[in-house]
Design a protein around this nucleic acid. Structure first.
Length: 481
DNA sequence: ATGTTC
């Protein structure tokens, strides 16, 4: 418990940790009072306080309602740094650089898919390798890499996985600027060389979902969503490539901090000034991993389309198979935000947090400029996931950010311990959900009871108005690592 | 998250 951390109520869904000691800004936590009790069970709020010590941090060290303990920064944390004096921290992005979620809509409805659901999920499981260390059929040469790390999803489309219009529905059109081949270790290249088009493990998944309830008819329609529609949700990141880049740069930044005599409450806050050589090199390698993750999700979506074509013997026109949007929830971005009444350029770290820009914002892709940015909040494999839309209040209060998931409630070990006599596969099947997974342990770690109910988390961001609910999805087919 | 403890 963190009795020593004082929480001052701002309103029913927002609490402030007053500035104290070496904190440069206060902390702010979006949660209900009852959620705070769970949040206080681990060291996540201490991490919010620690992050508030970082050089150049602006306004607040922010925590979303799905916050939990992470490496250095909490997962569900947001921190914006001044670009002149501030720092970039690999732990503020996460080990899985550009982990994120994309949603693909289809023209199909549940009753059309049900009769062949098991075949479909088997096909998806076959085409998209999953599990730790899973490798795919795509082998990346040095020249492939050079092109891929600069172009991201655009590279994947050029190679034939998907179409140009997909790129209009990805943050930054699927290409992150600034990648530099020379800032990346050989080890990172090796680890990533056969992992493109693979899902990975842990909380990553590929799901067939049904649009179960529409919460905002107009916005749902603008996103191309309707009741009973079949969708595909993909959650994964940059695999061993991004992981190795994070590892490499935490190491380099620890020596930078010793050299520059930067003292922080936790070694895991390893960071370097954005303008330093170490900071710039990290950003160049990080950009490459961002692009790798976008290419990865692009390729997996393309495999999903092919699975539908084969199982239902239909073509692209009948499937629909439109990308709704692709969100990044482990990323740092240079954006303009209002600080003390003036617009300034900051580097926003979003770790387990989703950008949620309102309509009219120039960084929202043109097709959604008059609607607002889609926000996806995946829940657990047995209950629900949500589609929301970004708001003006998010831009004012949270650097345009909302939460990213249900938030873990049980540790992985505790979930496995409690679930060891259960058969999640048949339990889910009785509820109409086909689950195919590579490892039984991962399934127990990820069982529904290990997570908060996602709608409770969505209610916080909805009521705090930092995103607005659009639709609820429910899973009918799940592929796990 | 992760060649699941370089």
């Amino acid at each position: 418990m963190n009795e020593s951390i004082n929480l001052v109520k701002i309103h029913d869904y927002l609490w402030e940790i007053p500035k104290k000691g070496g904190m440069r800004v206060p902390g702010r936590v979006y949660a209900t009072e009852s959620m705070l009790k769970d949040i206080q069970k681990d060291k996540a709020l201490e991490q919010v306080v620690n992050v508030a010590h970082l050089p150049g941090i602006q306004k607040y060290s922010i925590a979303m309602p799905d916050i939990h303990w992470g490496y250095g920064f909490p997962i569900g944390g947001v921190a914006a740094m001044d670009v002149e004096e501030g720092v970039i921290s690999p732990g503020g992005v996460g080990y899985d650089i550009n982990c994120g979620v994309r949603l693909m809509s289809t023209n199909l409805i549940e009753e059309e898919v049900r009769p062949k659901l098991r075949e479909l999920v088997s096909e998806l499981f076959y085409r998209v390798p999953s599990g730790v260390g899973s490798s795919g059929k795509i082998k990346l040469s040095k020249n492939d890499y050079k092109d891929l790390i600069k172009k991201g999803a655009k590279w994947a489309v050029e190679q034939g996985w998907g179409e140009a219009q997909d790129l209009e529905r990805i943050e930054d059109y699927g290409t992150f600027p600034g990648a530099n081949y020379d800032t990346i270790s050989q080890k990172a290249f090796e680890r990533g060389s056969d992992e493109l088009g693979t899902l990975g493990s842990g909380n990553h998944f590929l799901e067939v979902d049904i649009v179960d309830e529409i919460k905002d008819l107009q916005v749902a329609d603008d996103f191309g969503l309707f009741k009973d529609q079949v969708c595909v949700m993909i959650h994964c990141g940059s695999r061993g490539f991004g992981h190795q880049i994070c590892t490499d740069y935490i190491d380099r930044m620890l020596s930078y901090m010793r050299r520059e005599e930067i003292n922080l409450p936790d070694k895991q806050l390893a960071c370097a000034h954005i303008k330093s050589k170490e900071g710039r090199d990290y950003l160049s390698a990080f950009a490459a991993a961002v692009n790798y993750a976008w290419a990865n999700r692009q390729i997996i979506m393309s495999f999903a389309r092919e699975s539908f074509y084969r199982i239902f013997k239909i073509g692209p026109r009948d499937l629909g198979g439109h990308l709704v949007y692709d969100i990044s929830h482990n990323i740092a971005k240079f954006e303009e935000h209002k600080v003390n009444g003036e617009m300034k350029k900051v580097c926003v770290h979003r770790k387990g947090a989703t950008r949620a820009f309102p309509k009219g914002h120039p960084l929202v892709p043109e097709i959604y400029r008059n609607v607002g940015q889609p926000v996806f909040i995946p829940g657990d494999m047995g209950r629900a996931s949500f589609v929301l839309v970004g708001t003006e209040a998010a831009l004012d209060e949270t650097f345009g950010t909302s939460c990213h998931g249900a938030g873990r409630m049980l540790s992985r070990n505790e979930a496995v311990r409690r679930g060891k006599n259960r058969d999640l596969f048949s339990e889910l099947e009785r509820r109409g959900i086909i689950l195919i997974a590579r490892g039984k342990r991962t399934v127990l770690e990820e069982m529904p009871e290990a997570y908060k109910y996602v709608e409770d988390v969505c209610d916080v961001v909805h009521n705090a108005q930092i995103a607005k609910k659009v639709a609820r999805l429910r899973p009918i087919g799940v592929v796990k690592g």
